[in-house]
């Protein structure tokens, strides 16, 4: 039986291996060192004990200063991983992320670059309400210069995080908190997964379903349900939003001639909208049906379970959208 591992261990292992391999890799964030508990959910456990508190440092609660420190150090040879505890708190470090990290390469005419990895966790489903679980990937994808990576399995989390740390650009790495302890295939140690290579998880012929991150679970469930009804779905896991593996998406959609995009973030102006536009621009005459989007409803993430359930994309909502393209 193949070895299994959860996200927490896989992400911890990726940081460990990256730090062991390259002494310029360092980590900073709130409570990340062991004296502070090794991270609020222990994702960074053991790293400061092994690599020291100069390289693995707990910071003041100061997201802008954390991000700035990571950026500054990265300009002169370090490869910092900046942990922003929850994705909603990136709003506090937004200036440093958007105006500085993403743009310094371009604005300096390529003289400087910002090889930082911004790790953050998020994800609805746990009753945290409106300020602790947003998926904000579209904001950052909309900022030229920032790479945006969203793993859907522990093995991908390991391999993609290694790539982010080794990458010469700022990479935002989005981890899903509710599924942190979900088991999956264990990664291959030392094996980076290149950014910008989507994963065709399942071949199919009737419709292409495109998703990423946590929603891949709902997407898989939808595929299984439809399989029993005789619908053959090709499932594509984007893995990274930027760089976007458009060739793989277009190749699949030109085969199936139908496309549905599912993600947890609210639907309007989201990654699904961009994909729908790209697919329509490139394959308009081949499409058999309008591209469908399934995402969070357009509101703050609600607290009450019934509301939160209704807010999120479910296998049923994905199935319905797929059926619409087949009608």
């Amino acid at each position: 039986m193949a070895k299994k591992m959860n996200f927490v261990t896989a992400i911890n292992l990726a940081m460990h291996d990256a730090m062991e391999q390259d002494e310029n890799v360092m980590l900073l964030g709130e409570d990340v060192a062991d004296e502070e508990g090794g991270g609020v959910v222990k994702v960074t456990k053991g790293l400061s004990t092994k690599f020291g508190t100069s390289r693995v440092r707990s910071t003041p609660i100061a997201e802008e200063a954390i991000m700035g420190a990571a950026i500054g150090a990265s300009l002169v040879g370090k490869r910092p991983i900046a942990e922003i505890m929850l994705m909603n708190f990136t709003t506090v470090s937004m200036d440093q992320m958007v105006n500085h990290a993403a743009k310094l390469r371009f604005m300096s005419g390529g003289q400087t670059n910002v090889p930082i990895t911004i790790r953050t966790m998020t994800g609805a489903g746990g009753g945290a309400g409106g300020q602790h679980c947003d998926m904000l990937e579209a904001w950052f994808a909309h900022t030229a210069g920032m790479k945006v990576v969203v793993p859907s399995t522990p093995a991908d989390a390991y391999g993609l995080l290694l790539s982010c740390i080794q990458d010469d650009d700022p990479c935002l790495f989005i981890e899903n908190l509710p599924t942190y302890w979900t088991m999956g295939e264990a990664p291959e140690r030392g094996q980076a997964i290149p950014l910008g290579k989507a994963n065709v998880v399942k071949d199919g012929s009737d419709v292409t379903l495109i998703s990423y991150g946590r929603t891949m679970m709902e997407a898989q469930a939808a595929c299984q349900q439809l399989e029993t009804e005789g619908v053959s779905v090709e499932l594509v896991d984007l893995r990274s939003i930027v760089p976007l593996d458009l060739p793989t998406v277009l190749e699949s959609v030109s085969k199936t001639r139908r496309a549905v995009i599912a993600h947890e973030a609210v639907t309007p102006f989201g990654v699904g909208a961009e994909l729908a536009a790209q697919i329509t621009e490139m394959l308009f005459s081949e499409l058999q049906a309008p591209v469908q989007r399934v995402g969070g409803s357009y509101n703050a993430v609600p607290y009450a379970q019934a509301l939160e359930d209704a807010h999120l994309p479910t296998p049923d909502r994905i199935t319905d959208a797929i059926k619409k393209t087949l009608a």
């Binding site: 420190a69 500054g72 002169v76 040879g77």
Partner: peptide, 13 residues
């Protein structure tokens, strides 16, 4: 205000 957080990072390095 943007200069100060980055200066810290250079100094940290």
């Amino acid at each position: 205000g943007g200069s100060m957080p980055i200066a810290n990072g250079l100094a940290m390095a």
